[in-house]
Design a protein around this nucleic acid. Structure first.
Lengths: 200, 200, 200, 200
DNA sequence: TATGAATGAGCATTCATTCAT
DNA sequence: CATGAATGAATGCTCATTCAT
């Protein structure tokens, strides 16, 4: 079955986004070289410009695609059978798996650095928004303390997860996956001093 | 009293570091222009190269200086009179004050983004190291739960603080300083679900 | 009646020449974009290359077509009933009408700028040649002064007409068509100081 | 006597303008290559950008400089001793000399082609403006016919001079300098049919 | 030490042209 | 014949770094 012209075009576009993800993740937006992206995608430099207006536009597409994957993964973890603790753990398992597979892209998506990178902000905001809804519900249902501000707590949780994984990616030997997921759940839910409520 | 030649040189060096902090913070390392830094410092571009080997070297100095300020601030907060809660709150107050004053520089110092920025890692590592010591002591003293891994928890705390402040700097109207500091203490210590132990 | 394949091809070719005339006129040869010409012609970029070897070849066709229109118009004005003055005025009326309709194309055809544009030269040369013949006849018939060099005078006339119209196209409010044609005839025939010979 | 730094900078700037004049004149604005201009000026490509914002800005400077030379030359010809005919001839001698020396630059300055080249328009406008003043005075003094519109006539004269010289530069063997200047005066003043008024 | 004009390698982007469909 | 995605050489411009003054 021969590929149609438009299928081939979509394929080229995909290759560019994948290659862009890799290079942007490794070198950052400013550091990424169009030539490297094209080479990694296996196309000519000019081809990039038949699909995206410029480097920035490709970056936005990469971020948009990454955001979709991350958000879809989080949404799916909510479908997990079981109580809150199980769903929460499923979410952390998903995030850790994503970080392990995509590594640098995970960093690119979640990081918040110097300079204005609206798309980067957008991804972090979207993830935080998802968690804010959960925390608000948690306050109603009583499993989130009343003294918690959901906006603030969501940011703290995103930061905690990102920084721990960022460190772990560079020091994978320091903890097993299981320990990592465990800590991620524990610290977010109970802090370092908080007492764990009785079951039931 | 006329300034000695060496005093003048030190002054120029300081101006360059201050200007560098501003420009690096605003534009990132790759985005920063040597010409902008020189202009902001009020010296010629060539002067920069009589003080620093290259752009990278200036960046390292900026980060080193920032790191010193942050670490000194944290150390000082440990001198505060009172119990653990008071010291912890003092630390958060210091961090919030620093973020308010330095804004973009705070972001630059604490962020962990794409690309290899050894100095950026160094700053985050140093802050985490400080907290790891405290958490280890806490485990011995019993105020940190036994199921906490200090290495992991310290990273989570740094991430939580950085991301919350990063968000707050862009949305200062969402919370007062007091509320911010409050949440920072609460989330780090007790998470969103953890019970707060009885006083005494 | 369905169009035959060859008729369709001719039609496409015409559309390309018309579109080329517009774009070349507006942007110049170097400034014209093949993509713009194709878009304006309503065909794909590749189609252009099934009709013309390259951009230069299309430009040559555009100029050739324009040259034909201009020369035909001038020839026709010579068929006008009446004496020399009437024929001359008819020629100027034709030129003004052409400039009004085609605007930028008129400029493209008549201008002589930097760089070597053999076709541009060819058009100007052809118009001048036409006038040289008339002036030579005029010398024989006595209505052109003996001290006039037809080669030189023809160039002057072409230049005078082109520059006045070039200015007028940008400043149409400065003169009515009638005044314009009037000045065109007067200045070419009698200069600014020359006496107008008695009628008869 | 060593050149000061600022003198050297001015020298570099001059070399760039001269080189720019040559390359722009030969290839047009779009056709001119920054690398060629730099090479011709004997400097690095980057140097061009320490003196001019971009190619366009250099082009403007070239045109401005050329305009000044041309206008100064015309003004000087008005200082010539003698009657109107002598001054007029002096002006034509000056223009011919300029065209002979600068050749392609003369074409660049005076031409009006496709596309919007505001500086090119400005030069032609300035020369026309100079002549308009003279023609208006001529109408008052009676040596310009009453039926002449100075605005229109000035454009015609500029066009006549430019086109004749443009042709002559490519066909220098067709006329001697003297004949050229003669025709330039005659055609502009008396047209091809106009009677030359009696002396006195 | 300070200066800032000059350098030139490096890069993003353009666009005429090709060719598989 | 028509198409338009792909090509890649060519080009304008940037900017960290140097060095004569």
């Amino acid at each position: 079955m021969a590929k149609s012209r438009s299928e081939k075009k979509d394929e080229t576009r995909s290759k560019l986004i994948t290659a862009g993800a890799g290079v942007f993740a490794r070198r950052g937006v400013e550091g990424a070289r169009i030539g490297d992206i094209a080479k990694e995608a296996g196309v000519a430099m000019g081809t990039l410009y038949t699909h995206f207006a410029d480097k920035e536009a490709l970056f936005d597409e990469v971020m948009r695609a990454g955001k979709t994957i991350v958000l879809d993964g989080l949404a799916q973890s909510q479908q997990a059978d079981g109580d809150r603790a199980i769903k929460d753990r499923a979410a952390m398992e998903g995030v850790v798996a994503f970080a392990q597979i995509y590594g640098p892209l995970f960093r690119l998506l979640l990081s918040r650095g110097a300079g204005d990178q609206p798309m980067q902000r957008e991804v972090v905001d979207a993830i935080a928004a998802l968690r804010i809804t959960e925390l608000e519900q948690g306050k109603k249902d009583g499993w989130v303390r009343a003294d918690i501000n959901p906006d603030a707590a969501a940011r703290c949780e995103v930061g905690a997860v990102f920084h721990l994984l960022d460190w772990w990616l560079d020091n994978p030997g320091k903890m097993t996956d299981e320990e990592l997921i465990d800590q991620l759940c524990r610290v977010r839910r109970f802090g370092v001093e908080g007492l764990i409520p009785e079951q039931g």
